[in-house]
């Protein structure tokens, strides 16, 4: 499940970008330090494999729906966490750029959700513990299944948190989580089964590959403490910096509070943030707060929304909007005509 630019706030996007950038830098250093010449071409080609494999669908019995491979777990098993994280990031970069899956700002979130959880949590803490030492068909199966489910549950939870923190969607946190987790339980089971089956297939056909991967993965005995401390530091610094920025920017206010509390607008009105609101009103003529809904609890008298419905504003908004749209289109067409005339 991809996060989309349309649903995140700059603060959330920025924080996740910082965290992801840190992880990429750290992983790249690890891969470089391992000094295995083979790593870089192998990573690139495996990324292409995951990309191609994701396009192949298979039917899920008794559901009428179809599934495909996600790939994070397989990559981690074949390459070890660091290289796998970089490859997963590349797959998502290409998807963001070419298929607009997610978008540029949400890329940080997506890499984190789909890369960090399988590579840095599920693989070392679950898969390695179960199937690490001397893999058997059973342990590979169990390890992949549990690890994939855990990774997807965490990833889904990440999506829910990021969406709610961004405050663009109205979906209450609890509803969202209740929606996301079961869906991703199903997806996780499928992903786990596919991962297990493909890994077992490769292992049976050419056992030396997994053994080699095991050796290759030695770059990969994750120093979890370091990673987690680093991440915590990044989160605190970036979150702090960005929320400071956000609170000097009235629109970002929602970020600081849970949307579900449904109170932030009121508080922002009469609290310390009143000044900020004034600044906002000065800088933006007829700001979008004009459309803010009432803070009355749902079910209360909906006939008296705050601010009062002002037909004038609505009309001028509509007219202006249409005009601007027309203008943008005209500019585009004009430039094109000039270009083709030239």
């Amino acid at each position: 499940m991809h996060m989309a630019d349309a649903l995140i706030s700059p603060a959330v996007g920025g924080t996740m970008w910082t965290a992801t950038a840190g992880l990429i830098a750290y992983s790249a250093r690890k891969v470089k330090a391992a000094a295995d010449d083979r790593a870089v071409p192998l990573m690139g080609v495996l990324g292409a494999f995951i990309f191609a494999a994701q396009m192949i669908n298979f039917s899920i019995p008794a559901t009428g729906s179809s599934g495909h491979l996600g790939g994070g777990m397989i990559l981690a098993i074949l390459l070890g966490p660091y290289a796998a994280f970089l490859v997963m990031a590349s797959v998502l970069v290409v998807q963001a750029l070419f298929f607009a899956d997610g978008g540029l700002l949400a890329l940080g979130c997506n890499i984190f959700n789909l890369g960090f959880f399988p590579c840095f949590l599920a693989y070392p803490l679950i898969y390695k513990k179960i199937a690490g030492g001397a893999p058997t068909q059973r342990s590979v199966m169990a390890g992949s299944l549990i690890a994939a489910i855990a990774a997807l549950q965490l990833g889904a939870f990440g999506v829910a948190l990021e969406t709610v923190f961004s405050g663009i969607s109205d979906l209450p946190f609890r509803t969202f989580v209740l929606l996301m987790q079961p869906i991703h339980l199903a997806i996780g089971v499928v992903e786990g089964l596919v991962t297990a089956a493909v890994v077992t297939f490769v292992w049976k056909a050419r056992p030396e590959i997994l053994n080699a991967a095991e050796g290759f993965g030695r770059i990969g005995s994750v120093d979890m403490k370091k990673v987690l401390w680093g991440l915590a530091a990044v989160a605190v610094i970036a979150g702090g910096a960005l929320s400071w920025f956000a609170s000097s920017n009235p629109d970002g206010l929602e970020w600081a509070m849970f949307k579900t509390s449904g109170k932030e607008e009121l508080e922002s009105r009469d609290g310390v943030h009143a000044t900020a609101a004034v600044v906002q009103e000065r800088t933006a003529l007829l700001p979008d707060y004009g459309f803010r809904k009432s803070e009355a609890a749902p079910g209360a008298d909906a006939g008296q929304p705050w601010p009062a419905v002002d037909p004038g504003t609505s009309v001028s908004g509509l007219v202006g909007g249409a005009l601007t749209l027309l203008l943008a289109v005209l500019i585009g067409l004009g430039l094109r005509r000039r270009k083709s005339a030239a």
């Binding site: 870089v40 990573m43 080609v45 290409v94």
Partner: peptide
């Protein structure tokens, strides 16, 4: 290393698809 493997990825994306 990240960018280089990204370039490899893109190069072989066509071959593998």
């Amino acid at each position: 290393p990240f960018v280089v493997q990204l370039m490899f990825f893109y190069r072989y994306l066509f071959v593998l698809t």
